[in-house]
């Protein structure tokens, strides 16, 4: 298993690079090529139609990115469709290029109480000798939710300011989780903190991005002791090391487990299943709409 685990982290998703599956898909697309099972002649037809429609859905999204609009944060570029990489790709979508872009930094006014919180936070940070620009990378307001991207060296200071100032008072630290963006060079691992203010009835998210090569973030447990197990879980699943954590051991996986299972380069596992003579590959090796 460890060989699979140590796959190149900069590659695409696991399902995207499965050449064996690509051949299967290509073979299936040739109608009536001696495939066992009655619905064989129907399936390739619908699959091709499906591919056309999937491609059509792509076009407005890719075109829209070029137009004037909110700045987007590109985290990955994907090529092709269904994981087909070689000449066997008869889907016609082998040349498709799709950028994966997360909502980018927002412009003021952020709306609602967001401006107030950001202003007060800047003020409190300045009082403590931390310039706002040094601590907060960017502010993202998306779908009515506020996300502050914090530089890792200041995450504890920001947490303390958010918890202790009476006008901020995010006293409930609800947890930490991780997200892995293997194609986002230098910012592969993100830790996401969920904070809640019972006093003011507000919620916000902190996000800290660190490179895979140096996955260290200061632990937020001195400010939010309840983040203890959450940081252990994030370490367990993503390999983000929270410096200063009182006991950063694995929590869900066994102690001697190699690898961090929630990373994108870590396989889902599973075995092919045989049913009436046909082999169904495990879910992470199936044809997928990447």
């Amino acid at each position: 298993m460890s060989d699979d685990v140590r796959r190149d982290a900069t590659g695409d998703d696991a399902p995207a690079d499965a050449p064996a599956e690509a051949k299967d898909a290509a073979a299936a697309a040739k109608a009536g090529a001696g495939v066992v099972g009655t619905p064989a002649s129907d399936t390739p037809q619908t699959a091709t139609e499906a591919a056309h429609e999937a491609g059509a859905q792509h076009l407005p999204a890719t075109a829209g990115e070029g137009a004037a609009g909110p700045v987007l944060d590109v985290v990955a570029v994907r090529r092709g469709m269904f994981g087909a990489q070689d000449t066997g790709d008869t889907s016609g979508y082998g040349g498709l290029v799709r950028t994966v872009a997360m909502p980018g930094p927002s412009e003021r006014p952020y709306g609602g109480w967001f401006d107030e919180v950001v202003d007060i936070l800047a003020e409190v940070l300045a009082e403590q000798g931390v310039p706002y620009e040094a601590a907060i990378e960017k502010v993202v307001v998306d779908r009515g939710e506020l996300t502050l991207f914090v530089r890792r060296e200041h995450v504890v200071t920001v947490c303390r300011a958010l918890r202790d100032d009476q006008d901020l008072r995010f006293e409930l630290g609800l947890g930490v989780s991780g997200v892995h963006y293997p194609a986002d060079a230098g910012r592969e691992l993100h830790a996401v903190y969920h904070l809640c203010s019972v006093t003011h009835g507000r919620r916000l998210r902190l996000e800290v991005a660190v490179p895979d090569a140096d996955p260290h973030i200061p632990s937020s447990t001195p400010v939010y002791p309840g983040h203890d197990w959450h940081e252990r879980e994030t370490y367990d699943f993503f390999g983000i090391v929270f410096d200063g954590h009182p006991g950063l051991a694995r929590i869900e996986m066994p102690d001697d487990w190699p690898g961090h299972p929630q990373r994108k380069d870590y396989p889902l596992g599973g075995i092919p299943v045989e049913y009436k003579g046909a082999h169904i590959p495990p879910p992470d090796q199936r044809r997928a709409y990447n």
């Binding site: 996955p215 370490y235 090391v241 950063l248 102690d255």
Partner: peptide, 11 residues
């Protein structure tokens, strides 16, 4: 990746 990190085994 966890070298030098204080660990506390409980399982």
């Amino acid at each position: 990746g966890a070298e030098g990190v204080p660990t506390f085994e409980a399982t």
